[in-house]
Amino acid sequence: MSDTILEIKNLKKYFKTKRGMLHAVDGINLTVERGKTLGLVGESGCGKSTVGRTILRLIEPTEGEILFEGKDITKLNRRQLKLVRKDMQLIFQDPYSSLDPRKTVSQIISEPIIANKILKSSQDIHNRVAELMSTVGLAARLFNTYPHELDGGRRQRIGIARALAMEPKFIVCDEPVSALDVSIQAQILNLLKELQAEFKLSYIFITHDLSVVNHFSDDIAVMYLGKIVEKAPAEELFANPLHPYTQALLSAIPIPELGVKKERILIKGEITSPINPPSECRFKKRCNYAHDKCDVHPELVEVSTGHFVACHLVGKQ
């Protein structure tokens, strides 16, 4: 498979807490195709941001392999990692805390260029920053403004420009629009799509909002408590959700039509604690269809081409 840019194998990240091991990410397998987008969906606390940060090794994984263009980046030392990070970038959720309040827009965008010594002369750096700003749709008059003078959408554009500065091949978008107004969300999503086409970028798009990911992703993986419960091409997942959790998530998307009554599947109860989780199906306590078999956590099995589900109900039908 030569067109795979990123492959995650059995990735695990446990955090030590006072009450035991917190299984934030528990044995995940994912692949991202070059130039495609993988949507990673799940509720807050399910470990999706941890996955994103572990891919960039901002968090060291407990176990597992992360193959970026065939190279296992979990084994790289600092200098090699710095080289790889030129190709991998991160767009943050909160455009307020992801920009240093004491730096001007140009200083923020030029930071990766200077840190990696890509351009030397300040003339070149200035030109490059101006070019990046126009790429992401920032007016050049904002060159020397401070982030706090700008609105959320513009701030997020700065974050995107910074991520693009090193011409990466792969970007982890960690809920890049969830802190923004709906109208601005659309602008930023369109921008990300345009950039993907222009620079042949591959994305992992982390979000809790399925309606966002629908238009954006080629494949979608649904995460629940550190595990992937369903993984399928976007259209297939929306047309034919199999896991009870995915079905519940999809039923929560509002339909923009008057008079349509939609049946909501409500998930009862609270999310199981990720600290020392039992070996049963992680979703068992909240699942409407739970039965005896669910005491063993189901494996992710392929039910149709490209459609994987981890549920005892689905495999045997």
Partner: peptide, 11 residues
């Protein structure tokens, strides 16, 4: 703050 992480990712 996330800008510290951003700087780390930027190398």
């Amino acid at each position: 703050q996330e800008y510290i992480e951003a700087a780390k990712v930027s190398g």
